[in-house]
Design a binder for these strands. Structure first.
Length: 594
DNA sequence: TGAGATCGCCAC
DNA sequence: AAACGTGGCGATCTCA
């Protein structure tokens, strides 16, 4: 059973002058593609309508709720305490199907009935609006939602759903595509739930950490004391007055004036110069240490300083806004506050509430495991059987007399194979890896060859890479000069590295989606009485999740995380001999995890 | 003054 | 000269 939620009538923008009355919404009950019922309610009473529909159903968990965009429709329902098992996000599914429809290999035939935008609301918009309060109305009442003209009606959305389901049925791998679209939709709900819950963040601890590193909070426009001291010392050492270490050109010029021949001002270049040897190594090291310390503090101050706290932490929670499938490969993006790059230095401010714990789970070496499963490389899968896959590869390499004989080498060799490196230590090890795992290497190299030709690839569940742009086509074809030819070659290879990585990174994202979905289901069904746990997912970064809940639930949570990881592996790859072990810990501070 | 490019750092 | 995938983001610089 599908229940489609949408406005009963076209939006005010389409109909003319805005109707001052409450806009009616409609729930369409759809069974086997046929509409079998409809219920209307004012927008403000939508949560009540949804709940009564669920209560009337003999199997509420079997209802798939259908809406245009989870990020806009779900928040008020969630705020009213409604957390459905399943949904279908028409805009997220449309994005995947539209991409696939241009790629004949997928067998997807699809044309949208209504164009839907999967872009989540701006985080700024969310901040301006008060958080959704179930008693006070919802995001629907916000100016942003109201201003959108021509909001598709429930009937149009039902027609769109039918078109999407037809596209899936006729596709080459309907089961996989269904899993992808259902998973993406469920990801949409999880993203909203994590945004609403937020990551527990202690302002006092963060401020203490800032004061410790930077000194007291400076007036606006002024550098923190510790940074100013360092800047003065650097200017004195270089004997270049007024050098601004925040300005790359200024710093580079000052370094050159002082006789330091670095090519860039990057950390790596500076460190290399300091360790070059020759005369006065100690002086070099001292200068570089000051520069690096300045850079570290500058980063902390600008990326996660007081301003960041003011902007992003409300009532003890950091509320990043996630864009499900916002990255071409299907990974999630996040907007606002740099959520996907919470640096190690500030993780100490992430603390569980009193009596609660953070359970942090990190999937180990997901991408090489995905590679093993997709390529069917039994040797590589075997290497991942006992926990640490890099160790397993190194052990296998040692027994075979290969150069890939220790963990660090196994790691850079595998990463190099998946990223397409050709130079350096990593590139040099790839041929050795090919001897150990020919099937896996053939798999990634075949994806690379397709990309180099300008072709497209697909993930395991059927997310497709975009066709290269017209500009790419033109530049790759331009061999009029030696320079153009070299640029063409570079672009060709670059696109090959992209498609090579796309299949793995994208399938890893699918695994993570299935993992989180399974975690969510198990949280809802957990507890001694099966009535569900209070623990919730609060944070996600590619292959790591953070949950927050009562300490007494932590043991069960750790178990269900591991079960969910195994379930995700089975969902994608059936009984293929590939495992997805986790590193899991329940801690009070995020800094203690791992 | 403001959009866009560039640099550099952070995360996976 | 370590550079090989996906990103976000802030400061600075460039140019209209």
């Amino acid at each position: 059973m599908h229940i489609v939620l949408g406005p009963a009538d076209p939006g005010p923008g389409a109909a003319g002058p805005a109707d001052p009355g409450p806009s009616p919404w409609r729930a369409l009950l759809v069974e086997d593609g046929r509409t079998v019922g409809a219920r209307d309610a004012p927008l403000s009473e939508l949560p009540g309508l949804v709940r009564s529909l669920a209560a009337e159903s003999p199997r509420p968990e079997a209802i798939r709720w259908v809406w245009s965009q989870t990020a806009r429709v779900y928040p008020p329902l969630l705020a009213a305490g409604f957390e459905p098992a399943r949904c279908w996000d028409l805009s997220l599914c449309q994005r995947i199907l539209s991409q696939a429809a241009g790629f004949p290999d997928t067998g997807v035939e699809y044309a949208p009935v209504v164009e839907l935008d999967p872009t989540p609301p701006e985080p700024a918009e969310e901040r301006v609006l008060p958080r959704v309060d179930p008693a006070q109305g919802s995001l629907f009442d916000s100016p942003a939602a109201g201003e959108r003209s021509g909001e598709p009606t429930a009937d149009q959305l039902a027609a769109e759903l039918a078109a999407q389901l037809r596209a899936v049925t006729g596709s080459r791998y309907p089961q996989r595509l269904t899993l992808l679209l259902a998973g993406e939709s469920q990801g949409g709900m999880i993203a909203v739930e994590m945004n609403a819950a937020g990551l527990p963040w202690r302002r006092d601890l963060h401020e203490a950490l800032l004061a410790d590193a930077l000194g007291p909070r400076p007036a606006d426009g002024a550098r923190p004391a510790r940074m100013q001291e360092l800047a003065d010392r650097i200017a004195a050492t270089l004997q270049v007055a007024g050098v601004n270490p925040d300005s790359q050109p200024s710093l580079l010029k000052a370094l050159h004036t002082a006789g330091i021949p670095v090519r860039t001002t990057s950390k790596w270049d500076l460190m290399a110069w300091a360790e070059e040897g020759g005369e006065r190594v100690e002086e070099r090291r001292a200068l570089i240490a000051e520069l690096l310390e300045y850079k570290t503090l500058q980063r902390l101050w600008t990326a996660n300083g007081w301003h960041w706290l003011d902007e992003w932490v409300r009532a003890g929670r950091f509320h990043p806004s996630y864009a499900v499938g916002g990255v071409v490969t299907g990974r999630w993006a996040a907007h606002g506050g740099g959520a996907m790059q919470v640096p190690a230095t500030v993780r100490g401010a992430v603390r569980a509430d009193p009596g609660w714990l953070l359970t942090v789970a990190d999937a180990s070496q997901v991408e090489p495991r995905i590679l093993a499963a997709m390529s069917g490389d039994r040797a590589l899968a075997q290497a991942g059987r006992d926990g640490d896959m890099y160790l397993g590869v190194a052990e296998l390499g040692r027994r075979a007399g290969s150069a890939v004989s220790e963990r660090s080498r196994a790691k850079i060799a595998l990463l190099g194979a998946m990223y397409g490196s050709t130079t350096g230590d990593s590139g040099a090890l790839v041929p050795h890896l090919r001897r150990l795992f020919p099937a896996a290497l053939e798999f990634v190299e075949s994806a690379a060859r397709i990309g180099e030709r300008g072709g497209r690839v697909a993930t395991w569940l059927g997310r497709t890479s975009p066709a290269p742009s017209a500009d790419w086509q033109a530049q790759v074809a331009d061999v009029s000069t030696a320079e153009a030819e070299s640029r063409a070659r570079s672009m060709t290879r670059s696109h090959g590295r992209f498609t090579r990585n796309f299949v793995i990174q994208g399938t890893a994202a699918e695994w993570a989606l299935c993992w989180m979905g399974a975690v969510r289901r198990r949280l809802h069904a957990g507890g001694a009485d099966g009535a569900g746990l209070r623990t919730r997912l609060v944070f996600f970064v590619h292959d790591e999740v953070v949950l927050h809940g009562p300490a007494e639930e932590a043991g069960e949570v750790r178990t269900l995380l591991a079960e969910a990881a195994a379930e995700a592996g089975r969902l994608l790859f059936g009984n293929a001999p590939v495992e997805f072990p986790l590193t899991v810990s329940s801690v009070e501070s995020y800094a203690e995890a791992k």
